[in-house]
Amino acid sequence: MALEFSAMPDKEGYFGEYGGQQIPPELKAVMDDISAAYERVTSTEDFQADLANLYTDYVGRPSPIYFAKKITEKAGGANIYLKREDLNHTGAHKINHCLGEALLAKYMGKTKVLAETGAGQHGVALATACALVGIDCEIHMGEVDIVKEHPNVTKMKILGCRIVPVSRGTKTLKDAVDSAFEEYLRDPDNFMYAIGSVVGPHPFPKMVRDFQSVVGREARQQIQEKTGRLPDVVTACVGGGSNAIGIFTAFLNDEDVELVGVEPAGHGLNTNEHAATITAGKKGTIHGFKCYNLQDDKGNPLPVYSIASGLDYPGVGPQHCYLKDIGRVRYETADDEQCLEAFMQLSHLEGIIPALESAHALHFAMQEAARIGKGKNILVNLSGRGDKDVDFVAEKLNL
């Protein structure tokens, strides 16, 4: 019998034991208001029509599926197909939920939208969406990531966004989340916190998943039109997990389709410099929800690291945790060197420069293609393009 996931999360925001609202009572009321507004507003024909038109005419959806012939030949096994989210306006999957969140904030009468960003793709997408709908945007970003991802920082400034540098802690994504959330708490009645992944307290994991599910709906139809059947494997990188949930959702009830999330192993799982939260984490609470996270002996979040700024988060979406526990999704890892190798191979062989985040999934796909052999099909969610990463990679590889 097929598993049924459509009713998740429950009314309290739980996917099994994960998720929920681990937050103070006064903030719970605010989250409940957002949840009620989300259910009310997004069910209207006006909202659905607005979002559908923007996806088509503004984002450029549907994004195509591309058969990576030379990458397939290099891997020497299964056929590798790419879902080209890198071709979206702003260059990644992030625009899918940012448009939804910005529209929702506008419908709710909010005066400012706040968010965190790591790689800058969420920041650029949200700044773009806010410029479009006419609402103020403020992005908090760690100082390390500001230097590393300066092309996206420049784009955000051009789009009229206020950027708040975060100098605390590791000066990366986790600290940016803390900073943005603190600013949000100053005036939650007038501000909207637009979380950049399927994390945070309910209803954000559900909201972001729902907006990102357009990726999976398109991909499921497209791959069957191209190949005459469903893929054997669908894979995507996992940090917080939005692009992965976006494509996985459409295939969850297809038991013959293997789903694989790929986490960042950084400098190695035997070091303290990685962000493989499902692979090496423990159950705990972070940023208002329960999930697997990397923590010390006292349960505090550990510093995390990845060459891909969008993946260096110490927790992971609650639905991913549930899917891992029931065995519906397999979670693997790729380290920095493997990521860089896949990044360069796709660039050289196909003329596609991927985001470093997406290159983690590509590495896995090439290894898996060789393992499962010819006659099988692997679908990779190429979640973003690598414009933001080229200067960093060039310095890293002495190009």
Rank of each mutant, 00 (worst) to 15 (best):
T277F: 00
A280F: 07
G281R: 11
G281S: 11
G281N: 12
G281E: 14
T285V: 15
T285Y: 13
I286L: 15
I286E: 10
I286Y: 15
I286G: 09
G288T: 05
F289I: 01
F289V: 00
K290V: 12
C291P: 05
Y292M: 13
Y292S: 09
N293Y: 14
L294R: 07
Q295I: 03
D296G: 07
K298E: 11
K298V: 00
K298W: 08
G299F: 10
G299S: 06
N300D: 14
L302V: 10
L302P: 12
L302D: 12
L302C: 13
P303V: 11
V304K: 12
S306C: 04
I307S: 03
A308F: 08
A308Q: 04
L311R: 01
L311W: 01
D312A: 08
D312M: 02
P314I: 01
P314S: 01
P314C: 00
G315M: 13
V316P: 09
P318E: 05
Q319G: 09
H320I: 04
H320C: 04
C321A: 11
C321G: 06
L323I: 11
L323G: 12
K324L: 08
D325K: 02
I326T: 15
I326P: 12
I326A: 13
I326L: 15
I326V: 15
G327K: 13
R328K: 08
R328G: 10
V329P: 07
R330Y: 03
E332K: 14
E332H: 10
T333S: 00
T333C: 02
A334M: 03
D335V: 03
E337D: 13
E337V: 10
Q338K: 07
C339R: 06
C339P: 04
C339W: 08
C339H: 07
L340W: 00
E341L: 14
E341H: 13
E341C: 11
A342H: 00
F343T: 02
F343N: 01
M344A: 14
Q345G: 04
Q345D: 14
S347R: 06
S347V: 01
H348A: 14
H348V: 06
L349N: 11
E350L: 08
I352E: 03
I353V: 15
P354I: 05
A355M: 04
L356R: 02
L356G: 00
L356M: 01
E357I: 02
A359K: 07
A359H: 09
H360E: 09
A361G: 10
L362P: 05
M366W: 06
M366P: 11
